[in-house]
Design a binder for these strands. Structure first.
Length: 861
RNA sequence: GCCGGGAUGGCGGAACUGGUAGACGCGCCAGACUCAAAAUCUGGUUCAGGCAACUGAGUGGGGGUUCGAUUCCCUUUCCCGGCACCA
């Protein structure tokens, strides 16, 4: 038997064995229980990063575990291949995005193969290929027919110098990333998908997803943000219009002292026509990006429009202000302001000296006036005339009724969720299949002309969409009237591509339809695994898209993902340098050297190449844009795939964030070497004898108990808890126990052999190469992945004695061994007789004794 | 700003249902092997006091519930993810 562990040779051999035996090919088998295990597919950014390795190792462990439990397991892989980075790479390298993307795919596929994932590569797909994105276009047209897709205007970031739309990521501190120009908001026509039509179902179905983490369901529920409240009309003074607002706090209506509208609100625009100062303020509000985080943290500013509205119940005149904290996208783009009971209104009122009127008091006690901050809790109405003395629900009901009588209000449900804008003024995406005809208007491309193919040889230059400058693409004829027309040059959001790829894996070779009967066999996905950063958008869009496909009759499921595992991010330090132009250049941690003082305290960081100082931007998710990824290739090259896999699984549990550090890899490698030595030592002892259960020593019984406890522990950790780190720790403990047995007796030899065989089976999902190799070495034919998962022997698990903890007043004071079936009285008297315990009981009376069976005795004095 | 999550030895983490805090690993210390080093093996390793038995403190900070709290409740600080055009 080879004495040295040689991962490179073993891994190559085992991988070619899988290939020769076609072990990873999966077909639909109605007689077998299916298990669809899916990891979020990667964006082909260039090479794998640690997040990918973590994600796909988790998926592979689960897939192989389920396969060993007899399931027909599908684990596919594909490429989320459209997107912005390809355009950026194209600009800097002068290579078309398609070339760059396909090269990256080829390289990353090699890396995935080297890691030994049990993927059925026959099902590989890439979203940038026409046979995939054709069906984006096809379904978009179906949604258009059903009124689920529509056109309206949307607000985008506009770079006034490059004359181009910017992604949020391309806006840095309110300025364009390439030009440094202050970004403006601009309204442009866009296509939307009516996800709000499914808001109730998307919310209600969250309760039917017990296999999803609670936190993800909570985040989605809050994102959808269903609230019930009252829509209130404020008649505009001197005009025949009503200003509508929505509020969840109608109980505070009598405390409204002004009304605030968003800068984009029609009333603000009208008022600005005769007031240059107001027009200038509205223009100022147009400066800056559209991101909500920016809007919500900016300084609260406003200006009086000079207009007034009547309070709908009292008729009192209230001023109308334009305020930058009111979002046009939520509700009506206008709010009634109640400074006493809303913190933002309170701050705004203080700043602009607007009145503050308290109309709610706590159920018990009084508010101390003047207020130093808004009191936002529910309470009892005061200073509210006929509505005084009501609780929250009573006040809302009474006020809503009063408003309804005047036809100035009604109860209504409001969602925070907005429709999904899918238009992108970008080249590297799926073309929206529409044609603009002077005579016929917007005309859908007929199904027979799909796909609308994206030209693959363009190189963007940063100033607008290259498709819009490419006559070969946009010149076309109208399908209705046959006259010359212009093709839509916007492409689709890449979230469209990723909203249904899991369906296409089931039947990717089907060219007559988007899906076929095979998706009925595989769907829904039994286990979906991906980064927590996708908890809202991608997962919500996929759920929506699934429901649309169901309603079109393509599939018969309500939800795409039965169980969800959200892995934490892999984080690493970010290093950067800011150029004089304000442009930020990021450096990979591998290029950086940390400087320390004599005590080992960190004092700074320099670039290895030239020794110049470099700034740290803290730690953040490993990303292409921050250039802080660690290349897993070096890990694979020096230690092999099994070490890389073991290390990733052992370092931290999957749902937690993982801060990268190079230490620990050696430990994983050392463990595999110990496993190798344990196996070769056991094999060298020769053929294993049969175990004689009648003559076992206490030590041998303990060793066998450890073996069979470990089976149960690892089964639970891999299959239910997904705590791969504790599963590995349990196997390490087992090997520690077994290697302390010396093999000279027949029974010890038998136990070592049994322990080795079970160790290999338990570790097989995590380190499939070394376990396959050793499986054959101990005399088995064929694939360990097709061997059945071991079951623990009840007989071996039995114990005669257990250890109990003795506490005095909750503090540990001793330990006793008792028979498993000892009664409470026996346990109590043994506990009280314990030497150390007796010292504490002297001169004290025992108040009570708590016995927790199987665990402890607590004596209270 | 809003929504969600997190914080445990020198480090990564364990403690699953309120019941022994620190499993397992890294690092470090000591020893064995070696001419020496690497590798490997053995032992030790939360902090403070003590020769030891043992005692005290201890799970970001403050408070509470409980016989008993890393775990539940309130509050606070810091860190991470998301915020609709990064994917």
């Amino acid at each position: 038997m080879e004495t040295r562990y040689n991962p490179r040779q073993i891994e190559t051999e085992v991988q070619s064995l899988w290939q020769q035996t076609n072990a990873l090919k999966v077909t639909e088998d109605p007689d077998k229980e299916k298990f669809y295990c899916l990891c979020m597919f990667p964006y082909p950014s260039g090479k794998l990063h640690m997040g990918h390795v973590r994600n796909y190792t988790i998926g592979d462990v689960i897939s192989r575990y389920q396969r060993m439990h007899g399931k027909n397991v599908l684990q596919p892989m594909g490429w989320d291949a459209f997107g912005l980075p390809a355009e950026n790479a194209a600009m800097s390298n002068n290579v078309p995005p398609s070339r760059w993307t396909l090269d990256n795919i080829a390289y990353m596929k090699k890396q995935l193969l080297a890691l030994g994932f049990a993927i059925d590569w026959d099902r590989e797909l890439a979203t940038c290929l026409p046979d995939y994105y054709k069906w984006n276009q096809w379904l978009f047209l179906r949604m258009l027919e059903k009124g689920l897709a529509y056109q309206t205007t949307g607000t985008v970031n506009w770079d006034p110098i490059d004359q181009t739309v910017l992604a949020n990521e391309q806006v840095i501190d309110g300025r364009g990333w390439r030009t440094g120009a202050v970004v403006e908001k601009r309204e442009i026509p866009m296509y939307y998908l009516r996800i709000t039509a499914y808001a109730d179902e998307l919310l209600d179905c969250l309760d039917k997803l017990p296999g999803w983490p609670e936190r993800v369901r909570t985040m989605q529920a809050n994102w959808i943000g269903r609230s019930t409240g009252v829509e209130i009309g404020f008649p505009v003074v001197g005009r025949d219009t009503i200003l509508k607002v929505f509020t969840t706090r109608a109980d505070t209506l009598m405390g409204a002292t002004y009304v605030a509208v968003a800068a984009e609100h029609p009333l603000a625009k009208q008022a600005a026509e005769r007031q240059p100062a107001l027009a200038a303020f509205i223009e100022e509000c147009r400066q800056g990006a559209v991101m909500e985080a920016d809007l919500a943290t900016q300084e609260k500013k406003g200006m009086d429009t000079g207009l007034f509205v009547h309070h709908p119940l009292t008729g009192e005149k209230l001023p109308v202000w334009v305020a930058n904290y009111v979002l046009m996208a939520y509700g009506e783009g206008a709010v009634m302001a109640v400074p006493a009971h809303d913190q933002r209104d309170f701050e705004f009122a203080l700043r602009y000296k607007l009145p503050i009127k308290t109309v709610i008091r706590p159920v018990t006690g009084e508010l101390l006036e003047p207020l130093t901050e808004a009191w936002t809790e529910y309470g009892i109405t005061i200073h509210s005339g006929e509505f005084n003395g009501l609780d929250f629900a009573g006040a809302v009901e009474a006020i809503a009724t009063a408003l309804a009588q005047k036809q100035l209000g009604k109860k209504r449900t409001q969602y925070r969720l907005r429709d999904w804008g899918i238009s992108r003024q970008r080249y590297w995406g799926c073309p929206i299949p529409l044609i603009h005809c002077e005579h016929c208007g917007v005309v859908p491309v007929p199904d027979t002309q799909l796909p609308v193919k994206l030209p693959e040889d363009l190189v963007p230059d940063g100033s607008g969409n290259p498709l819009a400058k490419n006559p070969a693409f946009y010149q076309c004829t109208c399908p209705k009237c046959g006259k010359p027309a212009r093709r839509e040059t916007d492409t689709m959001d890449t979230f469209v591509d990723s909203s249904w790829y899991y369906l296409r894996f089931c039947n990717k070779d089907q060219d007559a339809g988007m899906v076929d009967a095979r998706s009925k066999y595989w769907m829904p996905v039994d286990q979906y695994i991906g980064g927590i950063e996708h908890a809202i958008l991608h997962l919500l869009y996929s759920r929506f898209w699934t429901k649309v496909m169901r309603d079109i009759g393509l599939i018969n499921i309500d939800e795409p993902f039965s169980n969800l595992l959200t892995q934490g991010m892999v984080l690493n330090e970010i290093f950067f340098r800011k150029a004089d132009t304000g442009r930020i250049q990021y450096f990979n941690p591998a290029e950086v050297e940390i400087k320390r003082d004599e005590a080992g305290q960190r004092i700074g960081a320099v670039l290895k190449a030239d020794g110049t100082a470099i700034e740290s931007g803290g730690i953040g998710t490993m990303s292409k844009s921050k250039n802080n990824g660690v290349d897993p290739q070096s890990l694979i090259d020096s230690y092999g795939a099994d070490t890389a896999r073991l290390f990733m699984m052992f370092t931290s549990p999957p749902e937690q964030t993982l801060e990268w550090s190079d230490s620990g890899v050696e430990g994983a490698y050392r463990f595999l070497k110990r496993l190798w030595k344990f196996a070769t030592d056991t094999i060298d002892m020769g053929k294993a004898p049969a175990l004689d259960k009648t003559t076992l020593t206490e030590e041998q019984r303990a060793a066998r108990r450890k073996i069979h406890e470990t089976i149960a522990k690892v089964d639970d950790d891999l299959g239910r808890r997904f705590t791969f780190n504790t599963a590995i720790a349990a196997v390490m403990e087992l090997i520690n126990t077994l290697t302390r047995l010396d093999g000279t007796s027949t029974n010890n030899h038998a136990i070592l052999h049994e322990g080795l065989e079970i160790t290999l089976l338990l570790l097989c999902p995590i380190v499939p190469h070394i376990t396959q190799n050793l499986w054959q070495a101990i005399g088995h034919e064929g694939l360990i992945m097709d061997a059945h998962w071991p079951t623990s022997d009840e007989e071996a698990l039995k114990r005669n004695e257990i250890e109990l903890i003795i506490q005095v007043n909750g503090k540990l004071r001793g330990k006793i061994n008792v028979a498993v079936d000892a009664d409470e009285a026996t346990i109590k008297s043994l506990a009280m007789a314990n030497d150390n315990v007796v010292r504490y009981l002297e001169n004290n009376t025992v108040k009570k004794v708590i016995v927790v069976p199987g665990r402890l005795v607590n004596i209270v004095i």
